[in-house]
């Protein structure tokens, strides 16, 4: 077994930063034969936004879904390597996936609100976790909506069906729903792909504000968004990690030719 300290050397990150997630030689293959990730090693620091970017089909979503074992639901046939979160390998079969998913939340590309009211969407995860206190649920509703920049727009209609919200509001509700669980890590898979620039701006501002409390892993919907939001950025191409560096560096002075081509828009 390789230690997490050794894995950290795969990345060019300074050692003194506390890494929340350490991914080590991760390979994932689906049953249709696609090898979606090959030997990816990556250390994701706490209290920062780490961006995973690259062309379509590169394996970014696969990597996200591996970090909270949501890929257990997909047709994965080969899985090797390690994903350490706070020193525990979450790929270990003995890991309690339910409490893992409470600690590592995810926001999907397509906002899927549950067929319930706005309020029920927000309290759903907490109630499943056994929270019964009305006042604490109420508090979580308001706090999470404020954090996702949605409170002003919906505070007077919390008991309306969530599906009645606009697409952008639904996406922020999905973010709020994850925030309500107070996870440690939040995975965001193109969370603003369906949003107008104003809503996108609101979400990005929320992320910047929230990042001191969370570890964010973001798949951006454009290189521009990657450059705007990344504290650290990983360029992923065809299942492989090509380059990983602080955001400022990778978007201004990429080391790898392929990264440079992609960042400058010379890629397919």
């Amino acid at each position: 077994m390789v230690s997490s300290a050794e894995a950290r050397q795969h990345s060019s990150l300074p050692q003194e930063i506390k890494n929340k997630i350490v991914i080590e030689e991760l390979s994932v293959g689906y049953s249709d034969g696609t090898e979606s990730l090959r030997d990816v090693s990556l250390a994701i620091p706490d209290h920062a936004i780490t961006v995973l970017f690259g062309p379509a089909g590169g394996g970014k979503s696969t990597l996200l879904r591996t970090m909270n074992r949501l890929n257990d639901l997909a047709d994965v046939i080969s899985l090797s390597g390690h994903v350490w979160i706070d020193g525990v390998d979450i790929l270990d079969p003995s890991v309690d996936v339910i409490s893992l998913r409470r600690r590592v939340g995810i926001v999907f590309t397509q906002p899927v609100v549950l067929p319930m009211t706005i309020r029920q969407n927000l309290t759903y995860g907490l109630e499943l976790a056994g929270e019964r206190s009305r006042s604490r649920l109420e508090e979580a509703v308001e706090q999470s909506l404020r954090a996702a920049a949605l409170w002003e727009e919906v505070s007077d209609r919390l008991d309306d069906p969530a599906i009645a919200l606009s697409g952008g509001q639904q996406q922020r509700l999905c973010l709020a729903r994850v925030l309500a669980l107070e996870p440690e890590v939040i995975l965001l898979d193109e969370p603003t792909s369906g949003l107008d620039p104003i809503s996108t701006g609101k979400v990005e501002a929320s992320l910047q504000e929230l990042k001191e409390h969370y570890t964010f892993v973001l798949v951006p919907h454009s290189v521009q968004q990657a450059a705007r939001t990344a504290d650290y950025a990983a360029f992923i191409l065809d299942g492989q990690l090509i380059e990983y560096a602080p955001g400022k560096q990778i978007f201004t002075n990429p080391q790898d030719q392929r990264t440079e081509d992609y960042v400058e828009g010379r890629f397919g």
Binding site: L70, R101, R102, F108, Q110, V112, G125, L128, L181
Partner: peptide
Amino acid sequence: NSFRVVSISLGGSKWQTIRRV
């Protein structure tokens, strides 16, 4: 199926997902 995935991603067990969604 997306409802099931969302419920499970929010820490729902399989049975909780079936019963509540």
